[in-house]
């Protein structure tokens, strides 16, 4: 029966499934079978720990407070236009150095990319979180939502 390549393939998939599920259930850092969406912040002044998502209204409020915005898109998109005063994410180490030189790791930072269909802002937020930053907010509506309503850009 295993001379048929498709049967071999099915067997390999089955073994992977069984081993994957069993090891995941017994290891201490196992994960749930389905991922949860990033949580939306209820109160933007009370954020700490894992990155949270924020709405356009919350993003504007933070923008008006002068919170640092980081653009997680590629350089060329940033050069074409970005939220006023936002930073280009650039090199990760440089970005951390720049943030550390201006504020503590408990101070708020907003990260955004094009819209909720791009993962770059979440990736950057979790990378910063792993480095000890713990007031990270992901503005999921991003560039498209911000420009759609005509908020300040440059």
């Amino acid at each position: 029966m295993f001379r048929v390549p498709l049967n071999q393939m099915a067997a390999l998939i089955l073994v992977s499934l069984v081993v994957g599920i069993i090891t995941n259930s017994i290891r201490s850092d196992g994960i749930s079978f389905f991922a949860k969406e990033i949580e939306v912040a209820e109160d933007i002044n009370d954020v700490s720990g894992e990155p949270v998502a924020i709405t356009l209204t919350q993003a504007k409020e933070l923008f008006d407070q002068g919170v640092i915005f980081i653009d997680a898109r590629d350089d060329e998109y940033f050069a074409d236009g970005h939220i006023k005063n936002a930073w280009n994410s650039g090199f990760f180490m440089e970005l951390m150095f720049r943030l550390d030189s201006l504020q503590s790791r408990n101070d708020p930072v907003v990260v955004y990319c094009s819209d909720d269909e791009c993962g770059s802002s979440e990736e950057l937020a979790y990378d910063l979180f792993n480095e000890g930053f713990n007031k990270l907010m992901v503005f999921q509506g991003g560039w498209i939502e911000w420009t759609g309503i005509g908020y300040p850009i440059e």
Partner: peptide, 8 residues
């Protein structure tokens, strides 16, 4: 199972 591995 080289054939199966190759297909995958």
């Amino acid at each position: 199972f080289v054939d199966g591995a190759t297909l995958l």
